[in-house]
Write a protein that binds this DNA or RNA. Structure first.
Lengths: 156, 156
DNA sequence: GAAATAAAATTGAAGCCTAAAATATTTAAG
DNA sequence: CTTAAATATTTTAGGCTTCAATTTTATTTC
């Protein structure tokens, strides 16, 4: 039965895939937009800043700029700017790397660490709200299907 | 059984929801990034331009700027710039609205319409590649779960 | 009809994002 | 040792995005 096309037997499966993709895109876009909005109005910050802080929070000794951009899958030049603004706000600082004068490490300040703890708690709560009605069974099923999708895409 | 938590019975369901969200975000981000990349290298264009062209293609008589921004759910000022660039490239043009001199309509030029036909065909093919391994059954299941998710979020 | 209000669109400021070029430093080849 | 290649990062140019302010035109109210 894996070749059936329940949505509409007259329609090519490529159209069904396209529609699924548009739906998936819309769903994740809605959640993301809501997160951005709440970060902005409740904490006057942004999702990219939050993401960088999350990465730094997991590495108490700090991360090189290129490690941040790898983990977040954004460009190097992008990270430069975001860290710059975090530093201006007193949430992060740059540390020289002893053995390699080309590199710089970014790490959270105590203030940054405190703020991130608050943000992370709020963030988890928001997600829980937004996905709130989804049961454990549905979560598992959805998760498994996304895994399969990613495997088919050759990503992990 | 809709209250079980198959991922890890010791973990609060909010963590499971958070992980699902991060996974969903990653999946849609990967697909989107790949689409952007292909639009850029194969057609020297961008996803926002594609999205605006798609909206205009469905409205042969053209759309007001604010109609575009509503349909695409982006800001008014954003649309101004994207349409501006489409006009510069000869893909769209601005038309005055007879009864309301505040408004302007944007519509595709014949060149824009031709290009969009090519882009749309390529786009559908890319999605079909990227989601290629997903069977019809899985598509339907995933689609239904996203519907439920959206309903719980109060969006449609 | 004049003044206030509302609506359509643009502009401006700020941030995010990328690819490509430039800088600085390190490592490898000879 | 000197030069060439590689690496880490920043800078630059251009586009996307939002919100808030502004401009222009319509509508409402008196």
């Amino acid at each position: 039965m894996s070749t059936t096309n329940p949505a509409n037997s007259a329609e090519p499966i490529s159209k069904t895939r396209l529609r699924l993709w548009l739906k998936l895109l819309k769903a994740s876009g809605e959640v993301e937009a809501e997160l951005r909005r709440r970060l902005r109005v409740e904490f006057d910050t942004t999702l990219p800043r939050f993401d960088v802080m999350a990465a730094l929070d997991r590495a108490p000794e700090g991360l090189r700029m290129s490690e941040i951009s790898e983990r977040l899958r954004v460009s190097n030049g992008n990270v430069t700017g975001i860290v710059e603004r975090l530093v201006e706000e007193g949430l992060a600082l740059r540390v020289a790397v002893p053995d390699d004068r080309r590199a710089t490490c970014a790490r959270l300040t105590p203030k940054g660490r405190e703020l991130f703890a608050v943000l992370a708690r709020a963030h988890e709560g928001w997600i829980n709200d937004l996905l709130g009605g989804v049961s454990g069974d549905d979560l598992a099923a959805l998760s498994g299907q996304i895994d399969r999708l990613m495997r088919h895409m050759g990503k992990e």
